[in-house]
Design a protein around this nucleic acid. Structure first.
Lengths: 332, 332
DNA sequence: GGATGTTACTATAGCGGTATAGAAACCGGG
DNA sequence: CCCGGTTTCTATACCGCTATAGTAACATCC
């Protein structure tokens, strides 16, 4: 094993100080072009690859990567169209800054990426409010931006008005004359299936807000919706949940779904039972993803601009990181 | 600005050496449980978060993250179902090892994540063969696993037999009696639109192999396919490309597509022209993604197990990383 | 009772860079 | 010729942690 080539190796070879070699790579204006050339070509001869990123990260105090903390397993995030759209927007917006994006799973047991991965800041996207990952990010005092997450004290958070959106959707349903309404929502770790008290569900700020919004519209007119909680937002859960509601005695004439994916499952379920949408049953989604466009019959959905959320979150995070670097501490 | 709390701060406070504090966090078996407790609670008092990941990365020589180099902009990767499936498989398989996944864009100009991001190894997924990113990863002598990429000297690469798969698909089409065949393929930076010499396309090992496979079956029986090269594999390009072929004089009776997404676009295009699939035109995809299942009429497609590719690639990469750590250098 | 371990902790020497404050040489102006 | 100002390079001091060897104290064993 040959000893590794470092700045010092090159410095010795060329006969200059290590600092000068460092400058040749990182601050070209600090030395004469000729010397820089000599250093660079010596480096090339020695097979030097450039300053070691890990060492540089320590010395500079920044790593060049930001994290994104996602719910549970990363797999879920990749199979969810809304999440991938969000991630794509982040990635795009991050690119010019040169920051890389590191995916952080919530972690289990001793594995806590949010604690152990070097990064300059992080997004928290639609996570369980009391996920240990969130806690660690806070403790590390990293700049954090919350998205689709319950606001946390001093940290910026990006949310749409989920509650109002949901209320508007439910009001619309009420105005159309529906009285028997079913609700399909996803909930990380609450009870699954038909539930009595819909607001008790734990985890999922967004789902909770949407639920509150629906109830805001339904309760005043005396509608008691049948609520089914699904383990997560995958389409097949939407299918199962919708079947269970549509197959019962008091079949709802409208289904409010907390995502388009769930709504898509519900449409399939209606179809499988020979029910017309929206003739026999109205189905309302949430997100306005591409999915909503693809589904036949076309879905009624609450529109939100996920791309914009990603872009905004990114610029906020970048600003935060720059402020920290400049010594402007926003959150004491 | 309070001076940062480090191991030394705690050591001074408790009256032990810094090394002992380090052990309290990283190697609990190296000290007595009582002392460890004292140290831990002192650390807590001081608001210590745990060993700094960047410093640890430098000292230990590993960062706890692996990269994945993707074609061009990350956005494309997120909107491609095959890519996200692959990434999900990687992420899943990576989780127990505690390694985080960092997304690396190809970079432009001075921004080269593959050069500057700290990582222990990397995947190269379906990249342009002469992408600068690939070159940098090699220079850094990082363990690299290539997936859907032309094999590179000593590095492991994971591929399915794209050529044979494509040949089989084309043979099937020939056996069905088709003689006018159109090909829709994606190509990073070749000429776009109808091309004369289909094998000249630059970039995209996979696309090239599939093309070769198709030609393997078509040329022997004297079929000269009409080939359209698309800028990338997005569905709408498939739509446009297929329209241009199906709208012409010598309308093909079969379309070979290098991905399911393109095939999906082609199906829509046929539909928009009032053509029956497969009555008027047969359409063959590649990948067997979920997309293939969703499309009506159902797509004929070449099946590949993207999940398995992800899992295998990951275990190979992890093995490589461990070997390097153990001093077993596979590629000199 | 001396060879041989084990346990619990410490001292030293890096890991591979960068920031910062100089020092030396050069340059034009009064 | 001396002064302030640049340009170019160097010396020193970290960044915060870990590996490794070593020391001292206490057991163990024949």
């Amino acid at each position: 094993m040959v000893p590794r080539v470092t700045l010092q190796t090159i410095a010795d070879r060329v006969g200059v100080s290590r600092m000068t070699v460092s400058n040749a790579f990182s601050r070209p204006d600090q030395l004469s072009p000729e010397l820089r050339q000599r250093i660079l070509s010596a480096a090339d001869d020695l097979g030097y690859v450039g300053p070691d990123p890990a060492a540089r990260a320590l010395a500079r105090g920044r790593t060049g990567a930001v994290g994104v903390l996602l719910t549970d397993s990363l797999r879920d995030a990749f199979s969810d169209e809304v999440a991938t759209t969000f991630l794509a927007a982040i990635a795009d917006e991050l690119e010019p800054s040169g920051l890389a994006l590191t995916l952080l799973s919530s972690g289990r047991g001793d594995i806590v990426p949010a604690r152990d991965v070097p990064m300059d800041g992080a997004f928290v996207y639609s996570c369980d409010t009391n996920s240990p990952g969130v806690e660690w990010l806070r403790r590390r005092k990293l700049p954090v931006v919350f998205v689709d997450h319950a606001p946390v004290d001093g940290a910026p958070s990006i949310n749409i008005d989920d509650r109002s959106g949901a209320r508007a959707a439910a009001e619309h349903i009420v105005q159309l004359g529906h009285r028997r309404v079913g609700i399909l929502t996803a909930c990380f770790n609450g009870p699954h299936g038909l539930v009595a008290d819909p607001v008790s569900a734990t985890g999922g700020h967004v789902a909770t807000q949407r639920m509150l919004g629906w109830l805001d519209a339904l309760e005043p007119v005396g509608i008691r919706p049948a609520v089914v909680q699904l383990p997560n937002g995958e389409e097949h859960f939407g299918f199962d949940g919708a079947r269970s509601l549509l197959d019962g005695d008091e079949r709802p004439t409208a289904l409010l779904c907390c995502s388009d994916a769930i709504a898509a499952g519900a449409v399939r379920a209606a179809d499988s039972l020979g029910l017309q949408v929206p003739g026999d049953v109205s189905i309302v989604g949430f997100d306005d993803s591409l999915l909503a466009v693809r589904i036949r019959p076309a879905l009624t959905t609450v529109r939100q601009d996920v791309e914009a959320k990603g872009r905004i979150a990114t610029s906020v995070l970048i600003t935060q990181i720059e402020n920290v670097r400049a010594g402007i501490v926003t959150t004491p």
